[in-house]
């Protein structure tokens, strides 16, 4: 096992990506859940429509987990063959995780707000629920972009280190 300080920094990056994405999603799914419960308590037939809106901001937590998992695979933590990473290499992995960590947290919170507003649309005009979902889904773009840049960075860094 080559548990260098660089490896520790890299793992810390993965942890931050998973935690911040998860925290953002937990806050937002909880908030949308409150709004959804309010609507369902008045009209239980709207459960299906508000459930979709509640699920939407949960993806950032999943993306954070994915980034952390890929990082652990790439540095060999998952198969027990941990790479020997210098401090600079560790920080490169750490930096690669930051887009998902920060982008995930912020996009989850704002997607939650858009989804709560969407719940209001479903409450008043259930026939417009598609539009409510689109408004909330638009925020997802930035979470996906953050996920892509984090994944591409992790793979690129691994290629650089292996070369």
């Amino acid at each position: 096992m080559n548990l260098t300080f660089g490896v520790m920094i890299a793992i810390l990056g993965g942890v931050i990506a998973a935690v911040m994405g998860g925290v953002g999603s937990a806050i937002s799914v909880g908030t949308v859940g409150q709004a959804a419960a309010g609507v369902v308590s008045e009209d239980p037939s709207k459960f299906g429509k508000v459930l979709i809106l509640q699920i939407l901001p949960g993806t950032q937590g999943l993306y954070g987990f994915l980034v952390a998992f890929l990082l652990l695979v790439q540095i060999g933590v998952m198969n027990g063959e941990v790479l020997t990473l210098s401090l600079a290499q560790g920080f490169m992995y750490f930096a690669a995780c930051l887009p998902m960590a920060v982008g995930g947290l912020i996009s989850a919170i704002y997607q939650g707000k858009a989804a709560v507003a969407g719940v209001g649309i479903v409450a008043k005009k259930p026939e417009e629920s598609g539009k409510a979902i689109i408004f909330a889904a638009m925020v997802e773009t930035y979470a996906v972009l953050a996920l892509l840049i984090s994944i591409l960075s992790i793979f690129s860094i691994t290629s650089i280190i292996s070369a």
Binding site: V39, G120, A123
Partner: peptide, 17 residues
Amino acid sequence: NQQYTYAVARIRANETK
């Protein structure tokens, strides 16, 4: 304000009446 999310959603549902 966030504590009002549930109440506001219920009110929005009642506004249809």
